[in-house]
């Protein structure tokens, strides 16, 4: 079976930065997976998601989409974005339009959908993210949880098969977080894949079927949560010892 998305020995160094942010990272992402990426601040989680969504191009290594190498031309990137969606860390960095309805419609129109088809995509994504009653609201008058779900809807309206999420649940209370996780579950139930970078260990333990641990730009382990925790060396890279007590 070919992976939906595969990274093969991928390295990336930010221009002007002395050390690489990712070093020879290989990872296979298949349909229907719930993947959580863990690691300290600066471990390279955001960089990994940036590369996987084609927003940055690796200096070494290759990324494969459905068994073909990613083509960085304009049509190639459009094809990649159709399959792989990225939700950024802060919704304020993602919502650009003043109205929720218009913001969500941005992605589908960029995919070249007609106005009717785009409208349909907006309504579907809004229903999936429970924001239908917010469609005629201004984006700047939403709560944090609402903003996060609207940002999610803006990406899901492009109907990606693989959703990359960068700490989008960080600033949310536990209820709002659960609402976002429900959206992920709906996507997975439809055969989609979610890759979530987070520091939320409880969520990783409860929700993930695969944990990827990054440290200084390298992948340390890819395993189901219980198996990943079992190794004390890995545990030490995920959280300080006090957290693991009890």
């Amino acid at each position: 079976m070919t992976a939906l998305l595969a990274l093969e020995a991928v390295s990336y160094q930010f221009p002007g930065s002395p050390t690489p942010a990712l070093r020879a990272v290989s990872l296979q992402i298949s349909a229907g997976q719930r993947i959580v990426v863990l690691g300290r601040n600066g471990a390279g989680k955001s960089t990994l998601l940036l590369l996987a969504s084609g927003l940055a191009r690796p200096q070494q290594g290759r990324i494969w989409l459905n068994g073909a190498p990613v083509d960085y031309s304009r049509p190639g990137l459009r094809r990649l974005r159709q399959h792989v969606g990225l939700v950024m860390q802060s919704p304020d960095e993602q919502l650009f339009s003043a109205s929720v309805w218009q913001d969500i419609s941005f992605g589908p129109l960029n995919l070249g959908l007609s106005a009717e088809a785009a409208q349909q995509a907006v309504l579907e994504a809004a229903a999936m993210c429970d924001v239908t009653d917010l469609l005629d609201r201004p984006t700047h008058a939403l709560s944090g949880g609402q903003k996060a779900r609207v940002a999610l809807a803006g990406v899901l309206a492009m109907r990606p098969r693989c959703l990359l999420v960068d700490e989008a649940t960080s600033g949310l209370d536990l209820w709002a977080r659960q609402q976002v996780v429900q959206v992920f579950d709906r996507l997975v139930a439809q055969g989609g894949t979610v890759v979530l970078a987070t520091h939320d260990l409880a969520l990783a333990r409860r929700w993930a079927d695969l944990v990827v641990v990054l440290h200084e730009g390298q992948i340390v382990v890819v395993a189901p949560p219980a198996q990943a925790w079992a190794d004390p060396a890995v545990r030490a890279l995920i959280a300080p010892p006090e957290v693991w007590e009890g």
């Binding site: 990225l86 650009f96 992605g107």
Partner: peptide, 8 residues
């Protein structure tokens, strides 16, 4: 970056 991620 976010706009590019959505196909800008």
């Amino acid at each position: 970056t976010a706009l590019h991620a959505r196909g800008f």
